[in-house]
Simulated scan of single mutants.
Amino acid sequence: MSATVHAYLARPGRPAVVARTLDELTGPTAGIVELPVRLMWNSERAFDLGDPDELLWMYENVLRETARVEDLRELIHAGTLRRVWQVLNLPRGVRLAWESRHPGLRAA
């Protein structure tokens, strides 16, 4: 571990949560996923992963709102994340946190 630790924020007061490895991200790749209220406060929390726009919206919400690495493991899929990384609309702190830990995402 380096002596300098960077704290990236998802939003003011909330640190970005990043998986230690991409391999641990084993979320679904198809079907309907309903996010828990802690990740999506809207009453419409179900996302069809077969719809590209809904998939992006779900990933953006999970990456921005989670405070638990378990959410990442259960809801995000590593291959899908690599595929959509460049088009995700993420807060700067979330993007920097993930790219600092997983530099391969920058080139994805």
Rank of each mutant, 00 (worst) to 15 (best):
V69S: 06
V94F: 02
L25A: 02
G31A: 02
T80A: 10
P103Y: 09
G27H: 05
N89E: 15
G104Q: 09
P15R: 14
L9A: 14
V33N: 02
P28D: 06
R20F: 09
R11S: 14
A10Q: 01
V62Y: 01
D53K: 12
T26V: 14
L56D: 10
S2I: 09
A7V: 15
R73L: 07
T29Y: 08
R83D: 10
V84L: 06
R11A: 15
R38G: 03
N61A: 15
A19T: 10
D48R: 00
E24M: 11
H102K: 06
E54V: 08
A19D: 07
L81A: 05
P103I: 08
E60H: 01
V17F: 05
L75C: 09
L56A: 10
L49V: 03
Y8M: 04
H77P: 06
S43L: 14
R95G: 07
L96G: 04
E54A: 13
V69G: 07
R83V: 09
E70D: 15
R95A: 12
G27E: 05
P12S: 12
A46L: 07
D51I: 08
L72E: 03
T4L: 14
H77K: 09
W98I: 05
V62R: 00
Y59C: 08
V37L: 15
A78G: 08
L25N: 05
L25V: 01
E54F: 04
G104S: 08
L90A: 00
A19H: 06
R38P: 02
P52Y: 12
Y8S: 10
H77T: 08
T80N: 04
A16F: 00
G104R: 04
A107E: 14
W41F: 13
P12K: 11
L9C: 12
T29L: 10
L90S: 02
P28L: 11
I32C: 05
L72F: 04
R101I: 01
L35Y: 01
R64H: 13
L39C: 06
W85E: 03
R14P: 06
A78H: 09
W98Y: 08
P15M: 11
A78E: 11
Y59W: 00
D71Y: 04
L56V: 10
W98A: 03
G50F: 03
H6T: 13
A97R: 00
G50H: 05
M58E: 00
N89D: 15
V17L: 09
A67H: 11
A30Q: 13
R82H: 06
E99L: 05
S43C: 11
P28F: 08
N89W: 13
D23W: 00
H102L: 01
V5I: 14
V87A: 12
L49G: 00
I32T: 13
R20C: 08
N89Q: 14
P91Q: 01
E60S: 05
V94E: 04
P12M: 11
L49I: 07
N42Y: 14
A107V: 15
R82F: 02
L39I: 05
E54W: 03
P52C: 09
I32A: 09
V37A: 11
L55C: 09
